[in-house]
């Protein structure tokens, strides 16, 4: 199976400050990958540089065997990369229908209408309130709208930045349910998440990012049960199913 996304030796910087120091990441079609790490480790920067919002100073980003570094964010989106940012994830003064329309901006009118109808069928919540302003929705509803907006183009790869941020446990649970459903349709998903347990529970694989470097990677289940990760990097008490995890692949810092 060839990788959908391949990131090799990526360095990126905000101005003179390098945030990511040589990261390798791979995502295969249809899998859910979680990127974990403490606050300020560069998770969002890594995602934004793959999307083209942050300048990559060195390294390679291949998406479906195409080098992305010379492309503008708009062009990367057009190749089939969806993105739901953290918090500012909708166009608040626009209605739900208009948010979806912007999501399908690159489609022809007839295709766009069909895609919108599909999304409204998938998320009945949105169909009921299609002419309501996005700014009046609750956090969970906005997250749903944001995912629908991103999915309207049928991306092969979807980045979700903190999808459960600011949500009640119940809403977060619903959102993760949706993520699992989306992955089931064949879309690969990369989640950046603080709610480690929940994210790992639905992921195939995970990367642990600390101060701009991948320090550990492996199957989600193994990482979920690894004591070292909880203590050293995530600052969170790890619970979860104690099964027989496959062995981890520790990576020495570069």
């Amino acid at each position: 199976m060839t990788a959908l996304l391949q990131v090799r030796g990526l360095h990126c910087a905000y101005g003179a400050d390098e945030i990511i120091h040589g990261v390798d990441i791979e995502v295969s079609p249809g899998e859910i990958v979680t990127i974990l790490g403490p606050n300020g480790c560069g998770k969002t920067t890594l995602v934004k540089s793959i999307l083209g919002f942050v300048r990559a100073t060195r390294g390679e980003i291949y998406f479906r065997d195409r080098e992305l570094r010379q492309l503008r964010p708009t062009e990367r989106a057009a190749l089939g990369i969806g993105y739901v940012p953290q918090l500012l994830n909708t166009f608040k003064p626009l209605t739900i229908a208009e948010n979806l329309e912007i999501g399908g901006y690159r489609l022809r009118r007839s295709e766009r209408n069909a895609a919108m109808a599909r999304m409204l069928a998938l998320f009945p919540l949105l169909a009921e309130r299609r002419s309501q302003l996005a700014g009046t929705l609750s956090g969970g509803e906005r997250q749903v709208l944001a995912m629908a907006r991103a999915l309207i183009m049928s991306p092969c790869l979807l980045f979700l930045d903190e999808p459960s941020a600011g949500l009640s446990p119940l809403r977060a649970h619903e959102v993760f349910q949706h993520i699992r459903d989306i992955a089931a349709t064949g879309t690969a998903i990369v989640i950046v998440e603080q709610d480690v347990q929940r994210a790992l529970a639905i992921s195939n694989r995970a990367y642990v990012l600390v101060t701009g470097q991948v320090v550990m990677q492996g199957p989600a289940a193994s990482i979920a049960t690894d004591e070292r990760i909880g203590r050293a990097y995530l600052g969170a008490k790890m619970r979860g199913p104690v099964s027989k995890p496959p062995p981890l692949t520790p990576i020495a810092p570069a």
């Binding site: 999307l51 083209g52 919002f53 503008r72 964010p73 708009t74 989106a77 057009a78 969806g82 993105y83 940012p85 500012l88 994830n89 909708t90 166009f91 608040k92 003064p93 626009l94 912007i102 999501g103 901006y105 690159r106 907006r149 991103a150 183009m153």
Partner: peptide, 12 residues
């Protein structure tokens, strides 16, 4: 309202 999100949505 949100230039980054617009770009990520494929708006030129």
């Amino acid at each position: 309202t949100n230039p980054e999100l617009a770009q990520a949505s494929g708006v030129n």
